[in-house]
Write a protein that binds this DNA or RNA. Structure first.
Lengths: 178, 178
DNA sequence: GCACACATGTAAGTTGTTACATGATTAC
DNA sequence: GTAATCATGTAACAACTTACATGTGTGC
């Protein structure tokens, strides 16, 4: 149901076309709930069917503009207030960490270095977004709070990767062969 | 394919029964790759079929003990070394943050407080695990590195939640009504 | 004897991914 | 004209969840 509410939340901000929603998912929402066009378009059709959104216009190249309805707004508010979020985390990278001992020390180190490179790129991207001027309305503030969460998470991961790298590079790590 | 390698990795440590693997997933691996018994048992059957694991014994109450084969060990090492991890993050809580502006200030604050309560419990659990004595072999060290990653992530989240709470409780947040 | 944890499995439904498919407008 | 981006959709498959289903040993 999360995709449903991600769409409703985005439309609560302002009416958008399916394509604009797709782009929005590729950009900011990608870090919270990635979704592809093959998921978004059918879900929009279902939301329309359910009366939670309505089509308010048709643009160039067959684009369709959707707006949230009163029912939709109620629904997304109910979701925000009432439902316990699913807090399970799936992370292939974290999984790999458990099995780092299966690799040669230098292989383990290069895995972690690669990981550090990736997340340091993400941090740069987040910092770039942070620099962009925005309003100081509630929407912008909420966005900045979310962004701040991303930045802190990535920073913590980078610090951890440095510590992990120091450990797998230590003589103690290399020495043990069990 | 991650579940497959999670199972192979766990069996690379030592032979285990399906049920023991299930418990292992409920405990430490739950924070990296949650899986239920309805996923684990069929996947074990497939791994057996593929010759990546073998059944080495039968225990009480029909339990089956599996061990990783040479092929399996090769496969999990190839996965560890060669494949780019899927780094996409799905977080309902992060998603909700984007839409915090749809709630009344006190509702937004109580959401964040609730979230802080949850993660502070997880941190306590992680710290408890951290205190447990372990060996200093490679496996234990890799586990501790993974645990350290979890702790740092949760700590960063808690710090962020405090900052976010301060913001939604500020007069500037309450004042704006747009 | 009965509850609980152990132990394994299948089935139906939902969600998400990758691939297939098509057409319109803009920039060069 | 032709490549890129805009714009929407469907279909097959894989992964995951929830519910159904069954039987065994242990502790009280």
């Amino acid at each position: 149901m999360s995709l449903r509410y991600a769409l409703l939340g985005a439309l609560a901000d302002s009416p958008r076309t399916g394509y604009a929603l797709l782009k929005h998912f590729e950009q900011s929402l990608a870090y919270a709930w990635p979704a592809s066009h093959s998921q978004i378009y059918p879900e929009l059709a279902r939301l329309l069917e359910a009366g939670l959104i309505e089509q308010t216009g048709t643009g160039a190249r067959g684009s369709k503009t959707y707006a949230i309805t009163e029912d939709g707004l109620e629904d997304v508010r109910r979701w925000l207030r009432g439902t316990e979020p699913d807090r399970r985390v799936r992370s292939e990278a974290a999984l790999k960490t458990f099995f780092l001992w299966l690799l040669e020390p230098d292989e383990a180190a290069s895995q972690l270095e690669h990981e550090r490179g990736y997340w340091s790129g993400v941090l740069g991207e987040f910092r770039r977004i942070e620099e962009e001027p925005t309003g100081d309305d509630k929407k912008s503030r909420a966005f900045r709070i979310a962004l701040e969460g991303g930045i802190r998470t990535v920073e913590a991961r980078l610090e951890w990767l440095d510590a992990a790298l120091a450990e797998v590079r230590s003589p103690e790590w290399a020495a043990r062969d069990d």
